[in-house]
Simulated scan of single mutants.
Amino acid sequence: MKLQRLDPDDGAAVAATMTFLQAGRAADTPWDPPHTERGLVASLRYGWDGEPGEKWLLVEDGQVAGTLDLHFSQRDNTHMAYVGVSVHPDKRREGRGRALAEEGLARVRASGRRLAMGGTLDAEAPAAFAAAMGFAQASVEVQRRQDLTEVDPARVEELRARAAEAARDYTLIRMDGPVPDDLVDEVAEMAAAINDAPTDDLDIEDEVFDAKRVRGFEAAQEAAGNKLYRVIARRGTDGPLAGHTMVGVPAELPDWAWQWDTAVLGAHRGHRLGMLLKADMVTWLRAAEPSVRWLDTWNAESNAHMIGVNEALGYRIVTRHLGWQRAV
């Protein structure tokens, strides 16, 4: 199969890929915001947090008919690789998806890694395709959305106040933009608490967090146009950092924001810090970014604790995503 790797400096190829992505969104996830060229180019250059993946294009008659996404982490989980396949809605059920998936599996195999992972919507056609390619379902993740125009500020304040009483030995720090140099190592250690979140049956190892990864994430989000907001809980006024929650607000999509990691270190759990952090973030975000209406988050379906926090704050289910894996 002849594929062309997408170069972020190739304006024509980027434009053709944007057309392809928007067609897929319209057909498959019309409830999601549109893709942005800035976000696509940033992902090609920086990935999510400094480790960019590969996007390969299947081009037919000058148009993108399909894509193959590959990601080979170098800092952790070097036993596996991510494989993502997408086909233009007008080109499906003609063998392109299978050919792209087989190519991706061959490349994972050639790299020496033993496992391929991927994700699909929880829908009949993509799930059947993954199973037909030999993948086994290993996780369920739920996408939820908060409509800030419908969330009662008094209710959020009530939840925040109750949590603050349970967490009276902690103080909160609001931080926008990059983490200060004197805190970056401690923030990396705190961020690693996300490894305690449920991963169901996925064959994955703990992710490695260090200052380089924190800075890589910040650089990637800045390139994508996402302004970072972070609320951090600290023991007392000068004690260790205990937990955080983080939101990204895309400059080119003023109605939208992404609720990313919320994590509390094990030694500080049991004080309702998760609720305190997220409720405070909602209050801050409404004041700092009044144009934001939609706030999306994702959790393992088995993460009952965080789902309870989210639903109390008004998050509602949008859709479910399935995680898949197979040996190569």
Rank of each mutant, 00 (worst) to 15 (best):
L3Q: 10
Q4N: 13
R5S: 09
L6A: 15
P8Y: 14
D9P: 12
A12L: 15
A13Q: 06
A16C: 02
A16K: 12
T19I: 04
G24P: 07
R25L: 14
D32C: 11
T36W: 10
L44I: 14
R45N: 05
P52N: 14
P52V: 10
K55N: 11
W56P: 01
W56R: 14
L57D: 03
L57Y: 08
F72Q: 04
S73K: 11
N77M: 04
T78N: 02
A81I: 00
V83S: 00
P89Y: 06
E94H: 15
R109N: 00
S111E: 04
M117E: 02
A123W: 05
A127E: 13
F129N: 12
R144P: 00
E150Q: 12
E165K: 14
R168A: 15
M175T: 01
P178I: 15
D181C: 02
D182F: 03
V187Y: 11
A192E: 04
N195F: 02
P198M: 00
I204C: 10
Q221G: 15
Q221P: 13
T237S: 08
P240K: 10
V247Q: 01
A251Y: 08
A257P: 02
W258T: 14
V264G: 00
L265R: 09
L273C: 01
G274S: 03
M275K: 04
L276N: 06
A279Y: 10
W284N: 07
A288Y: 00
R293I: 04
W294V: 01
T297E: 10
T297R: 08
G308D: 07
E311C: 12
I317E: 13
T319H: 06
L322G: 05
G323H: 05
V328R: 00
